[in-house]
Design a protein around this nucleic acid. Sequence first.
DNA 1: AACTCGTGGAA
DNA 2: TTTCCAAGAGT
Length: 376
Amino acid sequence: MLSTIAPVSRTGKHERSPLLTNAREALRSSLLEWYDRAGRSLPWRVRPEDRAAGVAPDPYAVWVSEIMLQQTTAQHAAPYWRAFLRRWPTVRDLADAPREEVLAAWAGLGYYARARNLHACAQTVANERGGVFPQSLEDLRALPRVGEYTSNAIRAVAFDKPASVVDGNVERVLTRMTAMQTPLPGARLEIRVLAAELASPVRPGDYAQAIMDLGAVVCTPKSPRCSACPWSAWCAGRRTGHPARFPLRQKKKSRPVRWGVCFHVTGQGRIWLRRRPETGLLGAMMELPGTGWTDSAPDPTEIDKACPFEADWRRAGRVRHVFTHFSLELEVICAAAPEGWRPDVGGWVPLTGIDQAGLPSVMMKAVRLGLETRPV
DNA sequence: AACTCGTGGAA
DNA sequence: TTTCCAAGAGT
């Protein structure tokens, strides 16, 4: 008769489970066995056989990957990681790079505070730590954009030191394993305690990647492949018959709509762009100049006030873009720059190679839409 | 604690 | 179409 792991009480107090104590070693070894056999390949990963042969990961490469992977799929992040590592092979190279180039290289990846902090962190490590990443959780945690998860991930993956990673995958795996009744995000403390007890002191780097792989490949959000799971025998979620119901979640707020207008001004094969404010949404990234984004349809007088010059403005249409906490309806209106007109803010950017100009996705959509109406 | 902060793939 | 949600952090 196989046992399941007992759930933790709603109060967050840990009811020490003898089953966990007894099963812990079996869970660890079966997961590592599965990981070795699965052989999942990721560009930043040192394969378990290579690690066993003494190949040490490059902490810089691991750090870049972990920042990119925050709330981002491996598939989306992979080409960016390759481009960054090829262009800036060491933390010193990244620290010495002009900031606009780093931001432009990040364009399209989202959460742009990550790019600003990546550059700042590279300069901290290069200039104040001789280019060497710290190994302690405390020192890692002090670096910009390195939080609870990322500090543990770097410590485990890069240095193969004992650490407990809790990302979205681990949350899903462990809430299913225990059929946890506490909804997220309130369950985070229970999950952290459970994850820490389970984390392996043996091959900590491989274990950390293995438990995340398990969530990414087997214990998937919609249709978990329990028959392929090394932990299925211990899984309380599977025994409920509906493992995909876990983790339970609090209801989410609905997403409001905001509206704005932007000006697509072209001339001599160039387009007018400006840089956004340092902080906030799309902070420090390039954009098409326009009105602010408001929670009601654009006011004609506001459009007039933001309008750079009198012209035969043509509507290109609307870009619909979904951000995390609101969606945007962005009206794009086009005109050719009048003879002799010069932008007071921002400047001209050649349309050839606009893909490399460092525009975030929403602005790239607006540029393309405008070009359909006014080809240049 | 509850918000803010992007994007794109999957179902 | 809508909804979910990715190797989360900062405030």
